[in-house]
Amino acid sequence: MSEAAHVHHPNYVKVWGILIVLLVLSVLGPEIGIKWVTLIAAFGIAVVKAYLVAKNFMHLNVEKRYVVYLFLTALAFMALFFFGVAPDVMQGSGTNWEKPGWDAPAPVAEPGHGEHGTAESGH
């Protein structure tokens, strides 16, 4: 059964090295503290890492195309879900309703002895 399944094995250690470098970048980027750098470092790099893992480790580059399309379809459904739901869920109030606790800070008291202390925001 596995005869047909043999694939050409790329240099996995090299791919791993790139992934680790990306990981370091994604951790260091946000330390600068600029919002857009944080977002790109966090999520842009995550997409690149996911691409590398899927392509090289999961061998999706040599798998039948429709497997990739299958995953993209699943992701597209999730995007559909997000954009269909977000207009409702991301509102604090709407036609004849409101969510009393939506914009308020967390009702349970924030612990005071956390490393970074308590933060008050959200109003």
Binding site: A86, V89, M90, Q91, G92, W102, D103, P105, A106, E110, T118, A119, E120, S121, G122
Partner: peptide, 9 residues
């Protein structure tokens, strides 16, 4: 995205 307070958390 709709809770700014979560950033601190």
């Amino acid at each position: 995205l709709s809770h700014d307070a979560w950033t601190a958390q």
